[in-house]
């Protein structure tokens, strides 16, 4: 089945089985994977004040290609709602490619395509009649290098998501103003920038720019946020702020974070998944992955023997 571009007749009934089989193969930890989902859900249900809530994402037999190069090989993985999942692994193992599949950015690269399914709750984001634009509104993304829009002010950067996506939905000016403030507060940036909202976004420091990008992402009110090494261009203080932010954000969003920094994974993630050469080696509670991994390759990686 690998190598055949996705076809519509890959029925949804067939997929869970494949997915389960994949998980059985790839992850010895599968049996207990249901627990954290339930636990988080009830916890989030109590403390949640915000209107939106994260949604679970389930990858089943996901394959991603760059032309002929097979970058992701049959990965099955559950991302529990309102949890932070860290993707770790050496450079080139496919972690970034994998998260780019979750908001369908992977296919923006010429020649790139995917097979398999990614379920956002009960909808396959690669299903027929699915609007890729709608997928990206539900699954936001924060990139490695802070990339605020250079022609826009701080305010306009945060409002950009609303204006770029909204025809009418962007709503009235007043509405946008509220959303911008709420998003900047949500990204822990409001106090720092409230007096200079009309200044250019690229005038901020690197860490502030990254939080501006997070504000821009949450302004669209997605349900899942993908973070592709969001701190690799930041200093330790700015990194700490972003990590604290991630901890707050998970009450409202499901977060997938790609990181090269294993300490970071240990600090922020509830669940950690280890990838190697396009395959998922192991996934489990972060603490267990770092202390008692069941796969020797995971142990070698987290103990610094390679990578």
């Amino acid at each position: 089945m690998n190598g055949i571009p996705r076809r519509s007749d890959q029925g949804e009934e067939a997929l869970p089985e494949t997915a389960a089989a994949e998980r059985q193969q790839n992850s010895p930890w599968t049996p207990s994977s249901a627990t954290p989902i339930a636990a988080t859900r009830s916890r989030a249900g109590d403390s949640r004040e915000a209107p939106s809530q994260g949604r679970a994402v389930v990858l089943a037999d996901l394959n991603a290609y760059y032309g002929k190069a097979h970058a992701i090989k049959g990965v099955g993985l559950d991302y529990a709602a309102n949890q932070v999942t860290a993707m770790i692994g050496p450079s080139g193992c496919g972690k970034s490619t994998l998260v780019r599949c979750i908001n369908r950015m992977h296919e923006e690269i010429p020649g790139a395509y995917t097979t398999g399914s990614i379920m956002l709750d009960d909808q396959d984001i690669y299903g027929e009649n699915v609007d890729v634009v709608a997928v990206r509104r539900a699954v936001g993304m924060v990139f490695q290098k802070p990339n605020p829009f250079p022609t826009m002010s701080i305010f306009d950067n945060v409002a950009a998501g609303l204006r770029l996506t909204g025809g009418r939905r962007g709503g009235k000016r007043e509405n946008i103003k509220d959303r911008v403030e709420r998003s900047l507060r949500g990204a822990g940036l409001w106090e720092e920038v409230k007096d200079r909202l009309s200044e250019p976004g690229i005038g901020l420091s690197g860490g502030q720019q990254q939080r501006l990008c997070i504000a821009r992402t949450i302004a669209v009110e997605p349900e899942v946020i993908l973070m592709d090494e969001p701190c690799s261009a930041l200093d330790p203080i700015a990194t700490l702020k972003v990590e604290e932010l991630i901890d707050e954000l998970k009450t409202r969003y499901t977060i997938v974070i790609v990181t090269h920094n294993m300490q970071q994974a240990a600090r922020v993630a509830d669940t950690t998944a280890f990838m190697l050469a396009g395959e998922l080696v192991e996934v489990g509670p972060t603490e267990r992955i770092f202390t008692k991994p069941s796969d020797s390759r995971t142990e070698d990686y987290v103990s610094g023997k390679f990578g």
């Binding site: 997928v135 509104r137 936001g140 990139f143 990339n147 829009f149 998501g161 996506t165």
Partner: peptide, 8 residues
């Protein structure tokens, strides 16, 4: 990419 990922 930033704009596309916002759903534009």
């Amino acid at each position: 990419e930033a704009a596309l990922a916002l759903g534009a």
